[in-house]
Design a protein around this nucleic acid. Structure first.
Lengths: 149, 149
DNA sequence: TACTTATTGAGAATAATCATTAAGAAGCCG
DNA sequence: CGGCTTCTTAATGATTATTCTCAATAAGTA
């Protein structure tokens, strides 16, 4: 599991710094119930409720930074705003199937996708950070509702 | 001088449309006293005062669009926000010298800069939209004030 | 302990989303 | 031919999301 000290090491390696805010954000995501993900706004409110308020600027900055570092995954579940979740290694690595009508989201696993992503990145000399298959579709329940597309 | 009908022609050529809002924005810039330039917010307020209110979204969208079309020039006079002015052809084409302390701005001309820009763009097969030399400096008056840098 | 400079927070500037409106193209007809 | 109606889809406005700027702070290093 990704620890605060490995975060610090990775940051320092690039001349960046471990701040209390970054530590807090990492911990929030690590303690999040499985399958949950947060938007910037969600995280902002959650932190306020816990009395650990962090400014929205800092939240946006660090969500982006930690995604680029491969610590978080940036999910495009619904249109209009992004969600984030912790990026876990192989046995927990998963993908998303989203109903574009009701936004119901299902996580599923498929090792061959990750393998293919890893292989492709390697072949091109890229350093893999994350590899996610996102499927937008219409769930059975919404299909039955017969609403027009 | 750039006319409404040439704007319409250029827009339509790309499958875009001439709207009353775009026409209004063009006219505002054409009637602006020489050497004046507006920020998005300036333009928004100016239009409200004239009773021709256009939404901020539309203003931002069109300032960017018209800059990319080469109709307006996007100026970075002071940090933090952009200013726009009409983009005029050769005899009126000019550059800017800005005091980074007091923001006093001087326009100056230099045909060889435009020629060089045109030549460079052409050599690379680029289509020239605008070519501006922006000089940030400290004006004599601010130098005399002896404030620390 | 001092020093450099990345980071934060607050606020302003800019971009993106989505439902609604309307520009321009195409087809009709007198 | 021109005016009128229909149709497609770009553009608008309102709102929300995100980025940027700057002065003040503090992490890591010497």
């Amino acid at each position: 599991m990704y620890t605060v000290s490995s975060l610090k090491a990775e940051l320092n390696e690039r001349g960046w710094r471990l701040t209390p805010q970054r530590e807090t954000i990492l911990q929030i995501f690590q303690n999040l119930p499985k399958g949950q993900h947060l938007s910037a706004e969600d995280l902002h409110i959650l932190l306020q409720e816990e009395g650990e308020a962090i400014s929205l600027s800092t939240i946006y900055r660090n969500l982006k930074l930690m995604s680029r570092m491969g610590i978080l995954r940036e999910l495009e579940l619904a249109e209009g705003h992004k969600h984030y979740e912790i990026n876990q290694p192989s046995p927990y690595h998963h993908h998303h199937l989203i109903c574009v009508r009701c936004n119901k989201t299902i996580e599923f696993k498929n090792d061959s996708i990750l393998k293919m992503g890893a292989k492709t990145a390697q072949k091109e000399g890229y350093h893999l950070l994350d590899c996610q298959l996102t499927i937008h579709a219409i769930c059975p329940s919404c299909q039955r509702s017969l609403l027009p597309v």
